[in-house]
Amino acid sequence: MAAEAGSATKPAKDRGRWWRGFTGSLAAGLTVLAVGVLVVGLVCLFTGAPGPGAASLVGHPLAAVLALAAQRVADRRVGLPAAGGGVAVVLFAAATAAVFWLG
């Protein structure tokens, strides 16, 4: 009987797992991108080469921090707050791509 009760609740948890995995990947990707932009900025600072501008050096880490905070909400809550946190992560990633990479 315990196995039946456990299997009845499992689909409810699996339903949002792919979404949290997707948004978690986006948040982690933004974090890696922010670290990469900062490293390139430091290399360009020391070599005298032109590098990313101030907006990029501030915007990428800011977007990563906001996405990680939203992902934390998505991971720790259920229902509408969790979905909202995931949507926020997607919006932060899309805004970062649109502002800094697409033109």
Rank of each mutant, 00 (worst) to 15 (best):
W18P: 00
V39E: 05
S7P: 04
A83N: 09
D75F: 10
L91Q: 04
T23N: 00
R72Y: 12
V37A: 05
V87Q: 12
V40K: 07
W101K: 11
L38C: 09
A82W: 10
Q71N: 10
A3M: 15
P81N: 08
F100P: 06
A67K: 06
D14S: 01
A8R: 14
G51I: 06
A83V: 14
W19I: 11
V58K: 14
L91T: 13
S56C: 12
V58G: 13
P11M: 06
A88E: 02
P50R: 00
T23Q: 00
A8C: 08
P11D: 09
V87S: 13
L26A: 06
R17I: 10
G6M: 14
A83D: 09
M1H: 09
A69Q: 10
W19D: 07
K10G: 14
V99K: 00
G84R: 12
V43C: 10
G48M: 04
V43S: 08
V32S: 15
G59S: 01
A63R: 11
K13E: 11
L80D: 03
G16N: 05
R17G: 04
A82I: 13
G86N: 05
A63E: 04
T96Q: 08
A97T: 09
T9A: 12
A98T: 01
R17E: 13
V99A: 02
A74K: 01
L80E: 02
L26I: 10
L62N: 08
A95S: 12
V39P: 03
A70M: 03
G48D: 04
L38K: 11
V65I: 14
A5I: 12
G53P: 03
L68A: 15
F46N: 04
L102S: 15
A3N: 15
A94W: 03
L33G: 03
L33N: 00
V37Q: 03
A74W: 01
A8Y: 02
V90W: 07
A95L: 10
R72N: 11
A49E: 14
T23L: 01
V37Y: 01
W101V: 11
A49W: 13
P61A: 04
A64R: 02
L45P: 00
A98G: 01
S56F: 07
V39F: 06
R17D: 07
S7L: 14
L38D: 13
P50T: 00
V35A: 10
A64E: 02
A28E: 14
A94I: 05
F100S: 05
L57G: 08
L26Q: 09
